[in-house]
Nucleic acid binder design. Structure first.
Lengths: 162, 162
DNA sequence: CGGTTTTCGGATATGATATGTCCTTAATTC
DNA sequence: GAATTAAGGACATATCATATCCGAAAACCG
């Protein structure tokens, strides 16, 4: 049960977009170079973010991506679900229904007890991600990343932001 | 990010084994028939449980599987990890290291901030599973499954338990 | 002893999905 | 009109889940 690498990519890209000045856009090309990722494939992750209305786009030279909301209005779960999908990690195939001791046509009143527990754990995972805002990540990064690297990175970004 | 179906199988099988009288074993064949599963493939899940020391086995006719511990001493996480593995759902490829603005040979003091958050969510998922004991599942099932189905199922099982 | 049943592990096949590339189209800028 | 961009479809490849089959070793039973 491994998350797509695009989840990691999307989160890092959002962190960069969060530092972009009002009204500027950053292209796939720049985001790919900055993170050392295949441009064409990263593009798919960014398209997912776009379809989830987390980012806005514009075409042409000086085009690219920017956040559609304030970093404090975006949480981790939104980003993760945008690229990974909203499906639960545990899927119940209702194998209890295969029990040969069951009467024909018997119908369960509740979802399977096993599934309910697995889904509860899934909710705990989602709750944790929901509670972390993109602004929290940016805050942590701006504290932890050495000031000179942080500064030069955004100089690099601004040079390429349309 | 979907769990293997073997996780579901293992949990249901453990619930059955939990109801087995002291000293009896139940074979792969019986467990597969009871749940309507492919015997050969279910066998792999049971082997995983065996390697994790959650179940004990014995060979020969009247052989099969039984729990290695009391149902109250087995939690969901143990079972899930036995077949799914202990790896975290988020793997950090450290793409921050690809940042062209980084000085050569720069070494990070902490794991990536993105990864730390994803791992925290992963821990929340594991914590939830760790808190649920196999005996809790059995308790729920014995309450929810209609008494006649519950009884006839274990009659069916006992007829096949060595 | 010999035949049967079982777990265990290896080998192999198949299907689905993640990963990655390429190309076309439409929109935007200059 | 030329260059650049996002969007998305088509396609190739690799990895992994799913599944089946077989042989070896152990246990039981006659």
């Amino acid at each position: 049960m491994i998350l797509k690498s695009q989840v990691e990519w999307a989160l890092h890209c959002c962190a960069i977009l969060a530092g972009l000045p009002e009204g500027r856009y950053l292209s796939t090309k720049a985001l790919a170079e900055l993170h050392g990722l295949p441009k064409e494939y990263l593009s798919k992750a960014l398209q997912s973010l776009s379809q989830a209305s987390l980012v806005e786009t514009t075409l042409g030279p000086s085009g690219g991506y920017r956040l559609a909301k304030t970093p404090s209005d975006i949480n981790f779960l939104e980003i993760v679900e945008a690229v990974e999908g909203k499906a639960r990690s545990f899927t119940c195939t209702n194998i209890r229904a295969n029990n040969p001791c069951r009467p024909q046509g018997y119908c369960d009143s509740k979802p399977c007890a096993v599934a309910r527990i697995m889904w509860e754990a899934d909710e705990a995972w989602r709750d944790t991600l929901r509670r972390v805002r993109l602004s929290d990540l940016v805050g942590t990064l701006s504290e932890e990343v050495p000031a000179d690297i942080w500064r030069s990175t955004f100089e690099w970004v601004l040079k390429r932001a349309g």
